[in-house]
């Protein structure tokens, strides 16, 4: 119990004192996962819409593959990204391994199937004739897409939250492709693992609490956007 109390005290101290290193780690976590989520939202929602609104042979197989991708193990992603970015790998010339960019790439691969799978489900859950109703109101294709997104905004925001939650909390890929380099590619999850390994439970506790606060704040923001304009 002392350990927990000490951890909470330390966390409070680190947060209140605005420790430069902790702030740096928090900011990098937010930046890497935020950019990765943004990219995966762009790819996931666009492809999700195409898959949900069009008919093509093998559609069910594609949706099954996406659903499988929603449970992609981060270490597997980390392994493949490492191999691809390795000095002798196909993209070794980019010199991205052990950089925040590599972490973003890995996180995009993890989050995209989550956002895409939930987007497909969100759109398929809308009334089948809604698209025809929108077009019959004289909408252009882009207006139709925008209205469909608005109609599915609740599950879409849930998809964004799930995508962000999936990448901010993952560790396997980040540590493999980022290297946990102090002041450069260290994020909250990798730092927590490292401090726990060293036996610095108070610092690990503090980092965990900050991570939880960060996830809560971002999700709170998303929820506010999600619930905005909903008439009573």
């Amino acid at each position: 119990m002392d350990l927990i109390a000490e951890g909470l005290r330390k966390a409070f101290e680190l947060i209140v004192s605005m420790d430069r290193e902790v702030l740096g780690i928090t900011w990098l976590s937010l930046k890497v996962s935020g950019i990765a989520t943004l990219i995966s939202v762009g790819i996931g929602i666009s492809l999700g819409m195409i898959i949900a609104l069009t008919s093509f042979p093998g559609k069910k197989i594609v949706i099954s593959a996406i659903n499988t991708g929603m449970g992609l193990p981060p270490v597997v992603v980390g392994l493949f990204v490492t191999v691809f970015l390795w000095r002798n790998g196909p993209f070794g010339f980019l010199d991205l391994l052990y950089t925040p960019s590599a972490m973003i790439i890995a996180q995009v691969i993890i989050a995209t199937p989550i956002v895409m799978g939930l987007s497909v489900a969100a759109l398929q859950n809308l009334p089948p004739k809604l698209r025809l109703q929108i077009l019959s109101l004289g909408a252009t294709r882009w207006q139709m897409v925008w209205i469909m997104i608005r109609e599915a905004r609740l599950p879409f925001m849930a998809a964004v939250m799930a995508g962000f939650g999936g990448v901010i909390s993952e560790i396997g890929a980040s540590i493999m492709v980022g290297g946990n380099i102090r002041g450069y590619s260290r994020v909250l999850t990798t730092a927590t693992v490292m401090e726990t390994g060293r036996g610095n439970f108070d610092v690990a506790f503090a980092l965990s609490i900050i991570l939880l606060l960060l996830v809560f704040s971002v999700n709170y923001l998303f929820t506010m956007i999600q619930q905005r304009e909903r008439p009573r």
Binding site: P127, K129, G138, A139, R150, R230
Partner: peptide, 24 residues
């Protein structure tokens, strides 16, 4: 203009629903 068997209203106010075709 078309009306289907289901009303297919948008998830917003009645006013905005009636205005939707005009806004488009």
């Amino acid at each position: 203009s078309m009306v289907f068997q289901e009303p297919l209203l948008f998830d917003t106010t009645v006013y905005k629903n009636v205005a939707s075709g005009l806004r488009i």
